[in-house]
């Protein structure tokens, strides 16, 4: 049970400090989630913290591999 950051990440650092489990770390070419540490915020917050501040649609996937912020959901630009 963990979220995943994929290659569309722009390395903006926003997610790392808001993670309650310190599961997100800086890496090349983009930030990554330590799947052993990620709790999907369970017990801490009702919503994914990383995906709630991430500005890039599709950059963070849930445990099923689906975009938590699908195209159009953040920028308002129709997909």
């Amino acid at each position: 049970m963990a979220v995943k950051i994929i290659e569309s990440c722009v390395n903006c650092f926003a997610c790392a400090p808001v993670c309650p489990s310190k599961a997100i770390y800086e890496a090349k070419p983009h930030f990554l989630v330590d799947s052993k540490k990620c709790t999907e915020c369970e017990g801490d917050f009702p919503v994914f913290q990383c995906a709630s501040i991430c500005p890039i649609e599709g950059a963070i996937l849930d445990s099923l591999g689906l975009a938590i912020n699908p195209p159009g959901s953040l920028t308002g630009i129709p997909p």
Partner: peptide, 9 residues
Amino acid sequence: APACNIQCH
């Protein structure tokens, strides 16, 4: 300062 807490159009 790379992170942002809002989105502007």
